[in-house]
Amino acid sequence: MQYLSQRLASKPAREREGAPPAGTLAAQQRERLLDAAEDLIGERGCAGTSIEAIVKVAHVSSVTFYEHFADKEACFVAAFDRAVVETGVELREPGEEGGEADWPGRVRTALAALVATVAARPARARLCLVEAPGGGPALRVRYEATLDVAAAALRQGRLLDSAPRGLPDTVEEAAAGGIAWLLRQQLELDRANEVGELLPELTEIALGPYLDEAEPGARARADDV
């Protein structure tokens, strides 16, 4: 089945050829569509967000929408990808200044940046943490791939001297999942602005497995890094 606006779209959906060159009208339209999708999803979820609503908020026609995206889900996926890339840039930068020796500090800085993004862009955070895990198949795959990237980054903690031997393979997957879970819960309870208070706990979840815990209370050290 095809919609008239799909038929009228003169060119194939651009997302198959990648985003249009920056600065062009097409690029601006695409950004506006993604902004609109992000805001609407933050407000009413993927299920409650229609193409009609997106084009209205973005001030473009539905023909333009179909020139950029094959369907609604393709648009959501592009919005998710953009959010991850833009958050990821913030996460990577501190690492370049740090160096291996300061790995725990880098993790803490990265988590602080993540938490700040959630607090500053709750709609974006809702898309990535609340909607994506249960969204359509493509979004779900993206979400899980992002968890894997985060888990791989945490895995470097196994190189620390204090890291115990024989950690289960799933430690990082569970830590990334636990962090995403806590953030999602705050968003669902409309407490995005309080999410910064969780930073010590998030740091503990991320670093805890690699700190020597011979004696009880050693975990408190995770707060001190």
Partner: peptide
């Protein structure tokens, strides 16, 4: 929540 989040994710 962190634990159940980890368990549920896996």
């Amino acid at each position: 929540q962190a634990l159940i989040g980890g368990v549920a994710t896996l």
